[in-house]
Every structure is written in structure tokens, then in C-alpha cells.
Design a protein around this nucleic acid. Structure first.
Lengths: 173, 173
DNA sequence: TATTGTTATACTCTATAACTATA
DNA sequence: TATAGTTATAGAGTATAACAATA
């Protein structure tokens, strides 16, 4: 348990982190904004899935997911095929073009990080990754907390998003 | 120097961090969105300053800063007084109402973090803070890197944002 | 001529709510 | 009646460019 000052420092860093995100966003191709890249990345990592699962992984409302997915589908990077098990659903799958774009994006962003973090040791990078994963887990669990000020209950109990470790987990899909 | 897989993990956490930010944003009063809170926080921390310096600290374009500042000024949380040394500039200063709001926001967000991170040790919180501060520093320095794909040079060499450590630095203003 | 700050415009991301088609 | 997904609408954040006032 930390003191208030610790948390204030942390919050300050949360806020400042936006600059890092924006800097990375600036190197995305204009046809493929961050939201699209996130869709491709998750499909590449966890394989074919339905909208609802993708929504959980993105941790955004399904309406948002729907828009991102439409964007990448229009550009031929993913396919949406009907789910034989449930006609309301569609199965999302990377196309070869999508896979190719994903590989290219991944190489490019990793190269950028490698440059910016050239003085970080492998272990330090791993530490930051692990702590951020844990932070997310701390916010994911216990959906019981509720300190909000405005607006009604935003989401139902929310099926837990898996993958709270740093390591690639078994495909649960 | 880390391997590609390490960076991919890290990028994944960067993306997922958005969920944490949104969760925190949901507990802000509706009159005071994140951008406004950031303005108040920086003024509270570094004291009175000009737009240009605030822009640097926020790491956003001055047009953006101008909007945030207008928002908080309209609500009486800050004052903009003319800078006697340069009539183009205005000095920004927290009002008592702004200070009071800031204190309240700070308590509330810290309390939320304390709940969510109740199983984190003080040292772990400090570690995450330090690593995020260092990450930001890695992106701040060496404004020489340029892997962008589209758009012209977005900012000039950008005077370095101070405060790259975890500790509160001396007021440089 | 350069700099400080403001404003207009446009784009991305997000959430809520209304809607459809299926379960 | 409930769920999967889509679409319309609105709000926040950001960047670019054009502009005004001053240096």
C-alpha cells in the first residue's frame, strides 16, 4: 500500500504517457490508424474470433469495435464470414493482405521502439511490460469498484478479459 | 537491447493501457474532463506559467492547450493575467476555486488508485512510476528520430520538457 | 520577420441509444 | 425476452492552418 504522493506521481505519468502514444500514432500509415492496427494485432495474436470477443480484448464498446472492424474490412485486411453456429454472429479473420500489413506495422513499430529505447536493457523492457500488464489486470478484475461521478452503470459485470500475464497465453477462443 | 518479441509485448500493453485511462476518465466530474484536469494539475505542481510552457508540459500543440485553458478559465478555475514582460503572453494562475477543485480531484483519483492497486506494494508503485517516467524521457530526448510516414515535420526541435525523474524537481519556471 | 496565442476546421476515438436480425 | 451486431449521434482530444497582436 502506497502513500498519496506515490499515486500522484503515478497519475502524472499516466497523463504524460499520452505523448508517447501520440508519437507512436504519428508513424502509422494514414490508411491504418491506431484503432485499425489494434484490430489487426489482436486477430494476428489470438486468431479468428467474433465481434464480441474482440470487443472484450479491445476493452471498448462493441459499437466502437464495429466501426474499427468495418474500416479494416473495407480495405480488405480482414474478412467477415457468417458464423454457422449463430447466424447473428460473424467470424473475423485476417486476410493475407491483412497479415502482410500487420507484419509490416509490427516491424516498423518495433524498430521505432528499439531506437527510442536503445539504452534500455532487455530486462528493463520486460519489467515495464509486466508492470503495465499487472496494472491492467488490477483494473480488469474486481469490476465491483465504482467511484464514478456521473452516468449510469456503463457495462454489465463484464466477462473477464484473459491474458493478464506478459506471456502469450493459450488460445481460449 | 531487447528482442522484437519483447517490444511486441510492450506495444500490446501500450494499447491495452487505454482501458485504464478510460476507466479513470469515467470518474472525472463531467464539467472537468481529463484535459482540464491536466491543466489544473500542472499549474498546481509547477506554479504560474505561460501558455507556451504549459504546452510543453502537456506535450500537445498550443492550439490544444489554448482550448483546454479556455475551458478551465470560463469556469473560474484559473486566471489569465497579462504578462508585463511580454504583451503577447498571458500568465496562467490557479484561483482558489481551482486549487480547491484540484485538491478534490487529486484525493478522488488517488483513492481510486489505492483501491484498484490495493495489492501493490509501495515499491512496486514506485517502480512503475519510474519506468513510465523513463519511457517518456526516452521519447522526449533525441527529437532526432523520425520514422514517420505521413505529414510534414510536426514540431520544431521542441525545447526539452523538464522533469524526467520520478521526483518533484525544482521549479524551473 | 519571428513569436505568442487564438480560432476554424477536420479527423480519430469513444459512448449511448435506437434499431435489425437472430436465439 | 435476450443477445449479436450495426448505425446515428454526440462529445472529448488532437493537429494543421490561417490569423491577430506584439517582439
Amino acid at each position: 500500500m502506497a502513500e498519496q504522493a506515490r499515486y500522484e506521481e503515478l497519475i502524472r505519468q499516466f497523463s504524460a504517457f499520452g505523448a508517447v502514444k501520440r508519437e507512436m500514432g504519428r508513424m502509422m500509415p494514414s490508411e491504418c490508424p491506431a484503432g485499425s492496427a489494434a484490430v489487426l494485432t489482436l486477430l494476428g495474436r489470438y486468431g479468428d474470433m467474433r465481434m464480441s470477443r474482440l470487443s472484450e480484448l479491445l476493452a471498448v464498446d462493441m459499437s466502437v469495435t464495429s466501426r474499427h472492424v468495418a474500416h479494416v474490412a473495407e480495405r480488405g485486411w480482414i474478412e467477415r464470414s457468417p458464423d454457422p453456429a449463430d447466424k447473428r454472429s460473424r467470424i473475423l479473420r485476417l486476410t493475407p493482405a491483412g497479415r502482410s500489413l500487420l507484419d509490416q506495422l509490427s516491424r516498423r513499430t518495433c524498430q521505432m521502439l528499439a531506437e527510442r529505447m536503445s539504452d534500455w536493457s532487455d530486462d528493463e523492457v520486460a519489467q515495464l511490460t509486466a508492470l503495465m500488464a499487472r496494472l491492467r489486470a488490477s483494473f480488469d478484475d474486481t469490476r465491483s469498484h465504482d467511484t464514478r461521478t456521473h452516468g449510469p452503470e456503463p457495462r454489465p459485470p463484464a466477462p473477464p478479459v484473459l491474458e493478464q500475464t506478459t506471456r502469450t497465453p493459450a488460445i481460449t477462443q
